[in-house]
Design a protein around this nucleic acid. Structure first.
Length: 493
RNA sequence: GGCGCGUUAUCCAAGAGGCUAGGAGCCGGUCUGCAAAACCGUUAACGUCGGUUCGAAUCCGACACGCGCCUCCA
């Protein structure tokens, strides 16, 4: 099997062949740091996180670049609103972004450059574009002349006439063609600025990504990612800039993730229907959110709702329950000596052994198929079921059984490492979920414990009516009682 | 108006011609004083109408509905 990636440029899944064998250069558009990130940003972050992890898992030496756009109209506007400077705003939200992504368990990219640290590179590219006739100076700004780049709009598969028919393009008097876009903007009073051959000013939005990708990955590199909404204009413009300046192919594989929807509508800042990552993490565990995001293919739309998050949590709990059972058994028994033959296993054991043997192959096959994490989760669940069956039907754990279970446990760690899941000890995770639910209950832990003690006494005295009364009372408060041989524990409904 | 995408059982969701996806739920069972939790088992689908094919959820065409981009946006 070999990795196949859906390339937006061709609209097809293509065999992935890196420019340099064994190495991958990947650039993903980060965020403009002017506010807290929402769930859409979380999805993009997690999608490219697992792509990054899987490429590494597949043996590639990956250089992953994800930028911060730290100079932009929105940042300046925000600074003006708050009566501060753009740097304060940018630094504040860079910090917030880092916190959010760390909580979501994203691996750190190889480089996280800031646009403002690459003004020199930006100016060089603009100079090259001007020299080649792709760009022109007009009223203190520098614009890209889209008509000089015949392949413009090749990524989104449109043409200039159709775009203009859309009639929502503002015709600026400084532009030769309405679709021309700014590479460099002359600074207005009070705005941050840098020196340039065209006077003091600041970079346009698109040019920074051309500059930073070239700096760290070269003129041509393997994978460029971002949200679907960046296809036009951002990525089209990057292509025009980079290929216009360098005269060679910019990106080999374009990868775009789908949106997060609310009630089947795109979640976005402009629509105002968004939830920030922080808000959601107050209610849901970060791994639940990750699991939810991975439960749909990265190019599909994903509908965000409490019900869907709850379902994701139930599914993840199922896996963690299985892992917790495995840990109990593995920790409670001596390390197996590993001698017996496979055929000594009972029938359920053979079934599990078969799942174990094929697991990583099947997992890799699904991930090789355009990073199909949703299907990979299906493979995981099949192993959960086989494991649970084995545990239920095996009374005495022979060394061979223990060795098999240890193998299962290791496979979950291996797959979890690619998906960014199961990073927490199962017992801790389950405890954490319980604690989070407990916060929403209006009865104290002490009171619950007191009632449980009273009920246990009643049950010992065979007073089951009183016992059931207490159980119903707690249930009304949303507390579930779990009786077992070891005693009674509780959980939140 | 231009370009593109989607429609899978109660819900979420994978699936690019023949091979049980998976999860949540329902129902049945194991366990239990009875329950619950957990676990096991089971259930059901491919928007509509045509076409291609021995065979279509999967390919082609039309229609309906939904969504996205065309303006800053992950």
């Amino acid at each position: 099997m070999a990795l196949r990636i859906y390339n937006t440029m061709t609209g097809e899944k293509e065999l992935f062949v890196p420019l340099t064998p064994g190495r991958v250069g990947m650039y993903v558009c980060g965020v403009t740091v002017y506010d807290y990130c929402h769930i859409g940003h979380a999805r993009a972050g997690i999608v490219f996180d697992i792509i990054y992890r899987y490429l590494q898992y597949s043996g590639y030496d990956v250089t992953y670049v994800r930028n911060y756009t730290d100079i932009d109209d929105k940042i300046i506007n925000r600074a003006n609103q708050e009566g501060t400077d753009y740097r304060t705003i940018a630094d504040r939200y860079i910090e917030a972004f880092d916190e959010d992504m760390a909580r979501l368990g994203l691996a750190k990219p190889t480089v996280e450059p800031k646009a403002t640290d690459h003004i020199g590179g930006i100016i060089s590219i603009i100079e090259a574009l001007v020299a080649k006739g792709h760009a022109y100076l007009s009223g203190g700004d520098v614009y890209y002349a889209v008509e000089t780049f015949p392949e413009y709009l090749k990524l989104s598969g449109r043409n200039l006439e159709d775009m203009l028919a859309g009639a929502r393009v503002e015709v600026g008097d400084k532009k030769r063609h309405p679709m021309d876009f700014a590479l460099w903007k002359g600074s207005k009073p009070g705005e941050p600025w840098w020196q340039s051959p065209w006077g003091n000013g600041r970079p346009g939005w698109h040019i920074e990504c051309s500059a930073m990708s070239m700096e760290f990955l070269g003129k041509t590199f393997d994978i460029h990612g971002g949200g679907k909404d960046l296809v036009f204009p951002h990525h089209e413009n990057e292509i025009a800039q980079s290929e216009g300046a360098n005269g060679c192919q910019f990106v080999r594989y374009w990868v775009h993730n789908g949106f997060v929807n609310i009630n089947a509508e795109k979640m976005s800042k402009s629509l105002g229907n968004f939830f920030t990552i922080r808000e959601v993490l107050q209610k849901y565990d970060p791994e639940t959110l990750r699991f939810f995001i991975l439960s749909a293919h990265y190019r599909s739309p994903l509908d965000f709702s409490d019900q869907n998050l709850d379902e994701a949590q139930s599914g993840l709990e199922r896996i963690y329950n299985c892992l917790a059972s495995l840990d109990d058994i593995l920790n409670g028994n001596p390390q197996p000596a590993e001698t017996a033959l496979v055929r000594d296993l009972p029938q359920v054991g053979l079934e599990l052994q078969e799942k174990v043997d094929s697991f990583m192959t099947r997992f890799a096959e699904t991930m090789d198929d355009d990073f199909n994490a949703a299907q990979a989760l299906g493979v995981l669940f099949e192993m959960v079921r086989a494991t649970n069956r084995f545990l239920a039907e095996t009374e005495k754990m022979a060394p061979l059984s223990l060795s098999l279970l240890a193998h299962v446990r290791a496979l979950f760690v291996e797959a979890g490492g690619v998906l960014g899941l199961f990073t927490t000890a199962p017992s801790l995770w389950l405890e954490r979920i319980k604690a989070a639910k407990a916060c929403q209950i209006d009865i104290s832990t002490d009171e619950i414990e007191r009632l449980i003690a009273e009920r246990s006494a009643a049950r010992r005295a065979k007073d089951f009516r009183r016992g059931d009364e207490i159980r119903d009372l707690l249930l009304a408060k949303g507390i579930l009682l779990l009786d077992s041989a070891q005693g009674t524990t509780w959980n939140v409904k």
